[in-house]
Design a protein around this nucleic acid. Sequence first.
DNA 1: CCTCCACTGGAATGTGAGGCGT
DNA 2: ACGCCTCACATTCCAGTGGAGG
Length: 410
Amino acid sequence: MTNDSSPSSVNDPLFESGHRIFANKDLLKIGHVPDANRIVGRDEEISKLANRLNGAVHGYAPENVIIYGKTGTGKSLVSKHVCQRAQNAAQDGVDIGTAYIDCAEDKTETQVISSLASKLNDKHITGIAVPHTGLSTSKYYKLLWKALDVQFDSVIIILDEIDLMNDDSVLMKLSRAEEAGKIECSIGVIAISNKIQYVDNVNERVKSSFQHKELFFKPYDANQLREIMFNREDAFQDGVLTEDVIPLSAAFAAQEHGDARKAIDILRHAGEVAYEADAGQVKEEHVRQAQQHAEKDRFRELVNGAPTQAKAALLALTELSIISNDDAFLTGRVYDQYERICNHLDMDILSVRRFRDILKEQAFLGVVEIEKINKGSAGGIHLENRLIEDPLVVRETILEDGRMQDWIRE
DNA sequence: CCTCCACTGGAATGTGAGGCGT
DNA sequence: ACGCCTCACATTCCAGTGGAGG
C-alpha cells in the first residue's frame, strides 16, 4: 500500500522528463487505494462492514462476512480500508492482524494457507520461518496456527475473488479452528465474490460451519463515478483534461454496470490515445475512441475464450444475420444453421436443449441478446436470438479459431 | 374467455476427466 | 495401480407457458 511515491527522475533525454499528458499515472492503477477521505459513496457499506468486525477491536470474535457486488463497486477497497481502520482502532492490549489474499493468484487450499502464514508471520516475534513451498498442507496450517497464537488476539482475513478458488474447505477450517481448540486467536473472514450465487455452490458441510452475514454492494451511479475520477485528476498534468472528459467517461461506465475500474480504465486509455495522437489535451473524441477500443477488446476476449461449441452456435447466428435482412432469429432456425455448420466442420452436434443453454450463456456474457416472444396459437412461446455486435466483426473473430476456419459460406 | 400451438426450462440421469486416499 | 468421489458437461423427458385467434 505504498503507491504514493512520485517518480524520482534522473534526466535522461531519451526518456522525456515529465510526461506531456500524465503527471502520476499510478493514480490510475487498478490496485491503487485512495485515502479514506477519497472513498466515494460507500459510507453505508463501510459502517456496515465495520459493525460486523467490531468484535475484533475489543479482542473477541469478528463475524464472517461475504460481500457480493459486481466488479469495480469498491468491494476490495472498502474491505482493505475497514481492516486498516480496525487495526488502528484496536484497544490497548488487543493485537489485530489482517491479511489480504487474492484467490485469483492463490487458488488452492495449500497456496492460500501458505500465503496467509507467510503474510501474518513476523519472524522477529515468533521465530518461525515459513518456507514458500515444500510443506504439506497440514504443516502450513500448523505454522499458521502457531504464528497467530503467538502474535494476535484476532485476525481479519480478506479472501478476494473467492469464487475463483477451487476448494472451499479453507473457509470451514478457518472458522472451525477456534472452536476446535486449535488456537486461542479468533478469526474473521471477509469473502468477496462477484457471483451472487456463490454460496449456493458451496459444499453443505462448509456452509454450516462458516456462519456468515451477507453484504451487497450496489453499482456506482454516474455522479459517484464522476467524483471518483475527479479525485484522481492529479494523475494528469494541469489543464490537460478538457472539462467534458470525466463526465463522458463516467457516463460510459455507468451505462455498463457502474464499474469504477472500467471508468478509470477508459480515462487512462483516453490519456494514452491522446498521447499517441500527439494531442496536447485529452478531448471528448479521445474518450470515445478509448471506449470503442475497450468495447472491442472485451468482445474479442469473450468470443475467443468461448468453447468450440459456443463458437459454432455464434457462427450460426452470424451467418443468418449476414444472409438475411432480419437480425433476430428463432432458436429453431439458428439450430438448423448450427447443424449445417457442425456437419461441415465434422463436429459433434449437441441436442437442442443444450444448444438453448449455450445461447443463454452467451446472452449472459453479453454477446447475444435473447427476447421472449409469443406467437399465440401460431406457435406459443419462442426465443428470438440477436447478435449484439456487428455480425461481420463477430464472424471475423470466430474464424480466427483454427477449428473454425474450414467454414466457408457457400 | 377458452383453446392451442410448439417451444421453453426444470429435473433426473448419464458420462468422462481429474483429484484423493490407500 | 485401484476404486471412490466430485464436477462439468450433455442428454432425455415432459409439464408449463401465455398471447393470438376463434
